[in-house]
Computed example of a mutant assay.
Amino acid sequence: MSTYQIGVDEAGKGPVLGPMVAAAVRAEEGDLPGEVGDSKQLTAATRESIAAKLRDAPGVEVGVGVVTTDEIDDPETDMNSLTVTAQVRALGDVAADGDHALVDAGDVSESRFARRVQADVADAGTDTAGGVAIDVTAEHGADEASRLVGAASVVAKVERDSRIDALDEEYDGDIGSGYPSDPTTREFLADYVDRHGELPACARASWATCEDVLAAAEQADLGAF
Protein backbone atom coordinates (compact mmCIF):
# COMPACT_ATOMS: atom_id res chain seq x y z
CA MET A 1 0.00 0.00 0.00
CA SER A 2 1.14 3.54 -0.72
CA THR A 3 2.80 5.57 2.03
CA TYR A 4 0.28 8.30 1.28
CA GLN A 5 -3.51 8.11 1.40
CA ILE A 6 -4.15 11.46 -0.33
CA GLY A 7 -2.56 13.43 -3.17
CA VAL A 8 -3.25 17.13 -3.67
CA ASP A 9 -2.49 19.61 -6.45
CA GLU A 10 -3.92 22.81 -7.89
CA ALA A 11 -4.51 24.34 -11.32
CA GLY A 12 -4.94 27.94 -12.38
CA LYS A 13 -2.37 29.70 -10.25
CA GLY A 14 -1.11 31.98 -13.02
CA PRO A 15 -4.08 32.82 -15.30
CA VAL A 16 -5.59 36.29 -15.43
CA LEU A 17 -9.12 34.88 -15.82
CA GLY A 18 -11.11 32.59 -13.58
CA PRO A 19 -10.55 30.88 -10.24
CA MET A 20 -7.76 28.70 -8.91
CA VAL A 21 -8.89 25.13 -8.32
CA ALA A 22 -7.31 22.47 -6.11
CA ALA A 23 -8.17 18.79 -5.99
CA ALA A 24 -7.52 16.07 -3.43
CA VAL A 25 -7.65 12.39 -4.36
CA ARG A 26 -7.87 9.79 -1.59
CA ALA A 27 -7.09 6.33 -2.89
CA GLU A 28 -4.78 3.35 -2.82
CA GLU A 29 -2.31 3.04 -5.67
CA GLY A 30 -4.07 0.02 -7.15
CA ASP A 31 -7.35 1.90 -7.47
CA LEU A 32 -5.91 4.60 -9.75
CA PRO A 33 -6.49 4.34 -13.53
CA GLY A 34 -3.42 3.05 -15.35
CA GLU A 35 -3.05 6.15 -17.52
CA VAL A 36 -2.79 8.58 -14.58
CA GLY A 37 0.13 11.00 -14.89
CA ASP A 38 1.05 14.66 -14.68
CA SER A 39 -1.90 16.54 -16.22
CA LYS A 40 0.44 18.77 -18.26
CA GLN A 41 1.66 15.73 -20.19
CA LEU A 42 -1.84 14.49 -21.12
CA THR A 43 -4.34 15.52 -23.77
CA ALA A 44 -7.59 17.19 -22.72
CA ALA A 45 -9.57 14.11 -23.76
CA THR A 46 -7.34 11.81 -21.70
CA ARG A 47 -7.61 14.10 -18.67
CA GLU A 48 -11.40 14.13 -18.89
CA SER A 49 -11.49 10.33 -19.19
CA ILE A 50 -9.23 9.88 -16.16
CA ALA A 51 -11.19 12.38 -14.07
CA ALA A 52 -14.44 10.56 -14.86
CA LYS A 53 -12.90 7.21 -13.92
CA LEU A 54 -11.59 8.61 -10.65
CA ARG A 55 -14.99 10.00 -9.69
CA ASP A 56 -16.70 6.73 -10.56
CA ALA A 57 -14.21 4.37 -8.88
CA PRO A 58 -15.65 2.93 -5.64
CA GLY A 59 -12.26 3.00 -3.88
CA VAL A 60 -11.51 6.63 -4.75
CA GLU A 61 -12.66 9.84 -3.05
CA VAL A 62 -12.30 13.21 -4.78
CA GLY A 63 -12.41 16.64 -3.18
CA VAL A 64 -12.28 20.04 -4.87
CA GLY A 65 -11.39 23.43 -3.43
CA VAL A 66 -11.95 26.71 -5.27
CA VAL A 67 -10.44 30.16 -4.70
CA THR A 68 -12.40 32.92 -6.43
CA THR A 69 -11.12 35.93 -8.35
CA ASP A 70 -12.36 38.20 -5.55
CA GLU A 71 -10.23 36.29 -3.06
CA ILE A 72 -7.24 36.46 -5.40
CA ASP A 73 -7.66 40.24 -5.74
CA ASP A 74 -7.83 40.76 -1.96
CA PRO A 75 -4.78 42.92 -1.11
CA GLU A 76 -4.59 41.31 2.34
CA THR A 77 -3.52 37.94 0.95
CA ASP A 78 -0.98 36.40 -1.44
CA MET A 79 -0.82 33.46 -3.84
CA ASN A 80 1.12 31.21 -1.45
CA SER A 81 -1.56 31.66 1.20
CA LEU A 82 -4.33 31.19 -1.34
CA THR A 83 -2.73 27.97 -2.58
CA VAL A 84 -2.79 26.72 1.00
CA THR A 85 -6.46 27.71 1.21
CA ALA A 86 -7.38 25.92 -2.01
CA GLN A 87 -5.59 22.73 -0.97
CA VAL A 88 -7.12 22.80 2.51
CA ARG A 89 -10.61 23.18 1.05
CA ALA A 90 -10.02 20.19 -1.21
CA LEU A 91 -8.60 18.12 1.67
CA GLY A 92 -11.60 19.00 3.82
CA ASP A 93 -13.80 16.93 1.50
CA VAL A 94 -11.83 13.69 1.83
CA ALA A 95 -9.34 13.72 4.71
CA ALA A 96 -9.73 11.42 7.71
CA ASP A 97 -7.83 11.41 11.00
CA GLY A 98 -4.47 9.72 10.61
CA ASP A 99 -4.17 10.19 6.86
CA HIS A 100 -0.84 11.16 5.32
CA ALA A 101 -1.19 13.55 2.39
CA LEU A 102 1.39 14.35 -0.26
CA VAL A 103 0.80 17.82 -1.72
CA ASP A 104 2.45 19.75 -4.50
CA ALA A 105 4.40 22.52 -2.75
CA GLY A 106 3.12 26.04 -3.44
CA ASP A 107 6.01 27.75 -1.66
CA VAL A 108 9.78 27.83 -2.12
CA SER A 109 9.96 26.14 1.29
CA GLU A 110 8.39 22.69 1.08
CA SER A 111 8.40 22.21 4.85
CA ARG A 112 6.77 25.58 5.54
CA PHE A 113 4.04 24.91 3.00
CA ALA A 114 3.38 21.47 4.51
CA ARG A 115 3.13 22.93 8.01
CA ARG A 116 0.63 25.56 6.88
CA VAL A 117 -1.61 23.06 5.10
CA GLN A 118 -1.49 20.62 8.01
CA ALA A 119 -2.28 23.34 10.56
CA ASP A 120 -5.23 24.70 8.60
CA VAL A 121 -6.76 21.26 8.04
CA ALA A 122 -6.53 20.69 11.79
CA ASP A 123 -8.04 24.11 12.60
CA ALA A 124 -11.74 23.55 13.30
CA GLY A 125 -12.25 27.30 13.17
CA THR A 126 -11.62 27.58 9.44
CA ASP A 127 -14.42 27.87 6.86
CA THR A 128 -13.43 24.43 5.55
CA ALA A 129 -14.29 21.03 6.97
CA GLY A 130 -11.38 21.41 9.38
CA GLY A 131 -10.69 19.61 12.61
CA VAL A 132 -8.94 16.63 11.01
CA ALA A 133 -5.54 15.51 12.26
CA ILE A 134 -3.42 14.46 9.28
CA ASP A 135 0.27 14.46 8.37
CA VAL A 136 1.27 16.50 5.32
CA THR A 137 4.37 16.23 3.16
CA ALA A 138 4.93 18.86 0.47
CA GLU A 139 7.23 18.39 -2.51
CA HIS A 140 8.02 20.43 -5.58
CA GLY A 141 7.08 18.50 -8.71
CA ALA A 142 4.98 16.02 -6.75
CA ASP A 143 2.54 15.84 -9.66
CA GLU A 144 5.31 14.30 -11.76
CA ALA A 145 6.79 12.03 -9.10
CA SER A 146 3.59 10.64 -7.56
CA ARG A 147 0.67 9.01 -9.38
CA LEU A 148 -1.60 9.99 -6.49
CA VAL A 149 -0.72 13.68 -6.84
CA GLY A 150 -0.82 13.23 -10.62
CA ALA A 151 -4.42 12.07 -10.27
CA ALA A 152 -5.20 15.20 -8.24
CA SER A 153 -3.54 17.37 -10.89
CA VAL A 154 -5.79 15.83 -13.54
CA VAL A 155 -8.96 16.46 -11.53
CA ALA A 156 -7.92 20.04 -10.76
CA LYS A 157 -7.10 20.78 -14.40
CA VAL A 158 -10.36 19.29 -15.69
CA GLU A 159 -12.39 21.22 -13.10
CA ARG A 160 -10.57 24.45 -13.91
CA ASP A 161 -11.04 23.92 -17.67
CA SER A 162 -14.76 23.28 -17.21
CA ARG A 163 -15.09 26.59 -15.38
CA ILE A 164 -13.23 28.39 -18.17
CA ASP A 165 -15.57 26.75 -20.72
CA ALA A 166 -18.54 28.03 -18.71
CA LEU A 167 -17.07 31.54 -18.70
CA ASP A 168 -16.54 31.31 -22.44
CA GLU A 169 -20.26 30.64 -22.87
CA GLU A 170 -21.23 33.31 -20.35
CA TYR A 171 -19.31 35.99 -22.24
CA ASP A 172 -20.52 34.73 -25.61
CA GLY A 173 -17.13 34.62 -27.23
CA ASP A 174 -13.68 33.13 -27.19
CA ILE A 175 -11.92 34.14 -23.98
CA GLY A 176 -8.97 31.86 -24.73
CA SER A 177 -7.13 29.85 -22.10
CA GLY A 178 -7.22 32.66 -19.53
CA TYR A 179 -3.43 32.91 -19.34
CA PRO A 180 -1.71 36.32 -19.77
CA SER A 181 0.49 34.97 -22.58
CA ASP A 182 -2.58 34.01 -24.65
CA PRO A 183 -3.26 36.65 -27.34
CA THR A 184 -6.94 35.61 -27.46
CA THR A 185 -7.32 36.25 -23.74
CA ARG A 186 -5.65 39.65 -24.00
CA GLU A 187 -7.85 40.55 -26.99
CA PHE A 188 -10.95 39.51 -25.05
CA LEU A 189 -10.00 41.75 -22.14
CA ALA A 190 -9.19 44.73 -24.35
CA ASP A 191 -12.44 44.36 -26.30
CA TYR A 192 -14.50 43.99 -23.11
CA VAL A 193 -12.98 47.11 -21.56
CA ASP A 194 -13.49 49.01 -24.84
CA ARG A 195 -17.18 48.08 -24.90
CA HIS A 196 -18.03 48.29 -21.18
CA GLY A 197 -15.45 50.63 -19.70
CA GLU A 198 -14.49 48.11 -17.02
CA LEU A 199 -13.00 44.66 -16.57
CA PRO A 200 -15.19 41.55 -16.67
CA ALA A 201 -16.03 39.99 -13.30
CA CYS A 202 -14.04 36.88 -14.22
CA ALA A 203 -10.79 38.86 -14.47
CA ARG A 204 -8.17 39.07 -11.75
CA ALA A 205 -8.09 42.84 -11.60
CA SER A 206 -4.89 42.89 -9.53
CA TRP A 207 -2.92 41.10 -12.28
CA ALA A 208 -0.50 43.24 -14.32
CA THR A 209 -2.24 42.15 -17.52
CA CYS A 210 -5.46 43.82 -16.39
CA GLU A 211 -3.61 46.95 -15.33
CA ASP A 212 -2.00 47.08 -18.78
CA VAL A 213 -5.37 46.72 -20.53
CA LEU A 214 -6.93 49.49 -18.44
CA ALA A 215 -3.92 51.77 -19.00
CA ALA A 216 -4.08 51.21 -22.76
CA ALA A 217 -7.80 52.00 -22.81
CA GLU A 218 -7.18 55.19 -20.84
CA GLN A 219 -4.49 56.28 -23.27
CA ALA A 220 -6.81 55.60 -26.19
CA ASP A 221 -9.51 57.74 -24.59
CA LEU A 222 -7.06 60.58 -24.01
CA GLY A 223 -5.93 60.34 -27.62
CA ALA A 224 -9.49 60.84 -28.81
CA PHE A 225 -9.51 64.41 -27.46
Rank of each mutant, 00 (worst) to 15 (best):
D74M: 05
D97F: 05
T83G: 08
S153W: 05
G106E: 01
D9P: 13
A129N: 10
I50L: 14
V154L: 03
R163T: 07
C202Y: 07
T126Y: 04
G7S: 10
V136I: 00
G37F: 10
A22E: 05
A203P: 09
P15I: 07
D9A: 15
G65P: 09
V193W: 00
V132E: 03
P183F: 14
D135N: 13
M20N: 11
D31V: 07
E28G: 15
E211R: 12
A11Q: 03
R204P: 03
G18D: 12
G173T: 04
E28V: 12
D143A: 05
E10I: 11
S206M: 10
A45P: 09
R116L: 12
V149N: 04
T128W: 12
T184V: 15
P58W: 08
G176V: 08
P180A: 06
A90H: 08
G130L: 01
A145Y: 06
A114I: 02
D38K: 15
T209E: 13
A114K: 03
F113M: 05
G30V: 11
A86G: 05
D73M: 09
C202W: 03
V103C: 07
D70E: 15
D127Q: 13
V66H: 03
T83F: 03
P19L: 14
Q41H: 01
G197M: 06
V94P: 01
T3L: 15
A27G: 09
E71D: 02
D70L: 14
D194W: 02
